[in-house]
């Protein structure tokens, strides 16, 4: 871990300003991902702006009938919230499928969205990795790729996004609210938050320097059966090989977001139109253009079968 300076801020504007004006600054909230990465010198911030004192830790009803979730609401609290459990069961289930109790107690809503890939080559600073060290090459393409992405990938990077929560947020059409360094606010649909790797896999989201997520807003409840199915090698404490977050209505329509297969939570509204035609049809659309490796090609079958199981379960 490199030496760094540290400050606590007490206003959102001060936080954004501090992060924007100091070279190499980063926000820290729960720190469950950032600190690990700093210890390994994968992240080397020179300055940390601790935002834990900003409040932003409540869940409030919106006039539109949805929920505004403060950026610092801990994963545990979000999963346990009565309204979330009742109206956004998918979100609660996805959260509880991730990490461990201890980690969920620390991890925040905004931090969860921005957590970084678990690609083993990203984690080993002796190995080439375009995400960690732009231009150094991708070791995973010809290496160990079983866990990694099959869609949305590029020749530069096949890292997958590890979040369970983000998959649910994507299916629920969440909107991310931010404040920029100049104090202006904006709302970013979750679909637009993460970027695909292309030639710049180190740029993972659209946030500007100093831009701070303040809340994640859920629209009014989507209803339907809400299922989160996470497929993994061991029963707990493992990242998804594939996960399916689904909202299925009695008439057979619905929404599907998939985790574990792409650099971001993966959803395709065109694929959802195929729901009436069954999992195979949906999977075919969702996975169009997939570029699996030999080691992770099984994910194509797995997506289809997991989705099948989810649709069966949704029918009850």
């Amino acid at each position: 871990m490199r030496a760094f300076s540290y400050e606590r801020v007490s206003s959102i504007e001060a936080a954004a300003r501090a992060a924007a004006t100091t070279d190499g600054a980063k926000f820290i909230a729960g720190g469950t991902n950032l600190l690990d990465l700093m210890k390994l010198e994968i992240e080397t911030p020179t300055h940390l702006v601790d935002v834990n004192g900003l409040g932003l830790d409540s869940i409030e009803a919106t006039p539109e009938g949805g929920l505004r979730i403060g950026a610092l609401v801990r994963n545990t609290d979000l999963a346990a919230d009565e309204r979330v459990r009742r109206d956004y069961a998918l979100l609660s289930r996805a959260l509880l499928a991730g990490a461990s109790g201890q980690l969920r107690n620390r991890a925040t809503t905004a931090g969860n969205l921005l957590q970084r890939t678990r690609c083993p080559y990203f984690y080993d600073t002796n190995q080439p990795c375009n995400k960690r060290q732009p231009g150094s090459g991708c070791s995973a393409l010809a290496g160990f790729s079983r866990q990694l992405a099959v869609v949305g990938v590029s020749d530069a990077c096949i890292a997958s996004h590890p979040s369970d929560m983000a998959v649910a947020m994507r299916a629920l059409d969440a909107v991310v609210e931010t404040v920029r360094a100049d104090g202006t606010k904006r709302s970013i649909p979750i679909a637009d938050l993460h970027r695909l790797p292309g030639d710049t896999p180190h740029v993972e989201h659209v946030l500007e320097r100093g831009e701070l997520i303040t809340a994640v807003v859920l629209p009014k409840p989507a209803g339907g059966e809400q299922i989160y199915r996470k497929v993994r090698d061991r029963a707990s404490y493992a990242f998804a090989l594939v996960s399916v977050g689904a909202v299925v209505h009695p008439d057979g329509t619905g929404r599907v977001a998939v985790g574990g297969i792409a650099p971001k939570p993966w959803r395709d509204e065109a694929a959802e139109k195929e729901l009436a035609n069954g999992a195979k049809a949906v999977a075919a659309k969702l996975l169009a253009g997939a570029r699996p490796t030999e080691q992770n090609a099984f994910k194509l079958t797995l997506v289809e079968r997991a989705l099948s199981a989810v649709l069966v379960e949704a029918k009850g």
């Binding site: 678990r118 083993p120 080559y121 984690y123 080993d124 190995q127 070791s139 010809a142 290496g143 160990f144 079983r146 866990q147 090698d233 061991r234 029963a235 707990s236 404490y237 493992a238 990242f239």
Partner: peptide
Amino acid sequence: LVVDKKRGFFVNHDLAAYEVPVHAD
């Protein structure tokens, strides 16, 4: 332990990636 046959090492060299059983298993 997954071997990277090009670079010659065990890739999954931590307890997140080398999965031993957890209680739930």
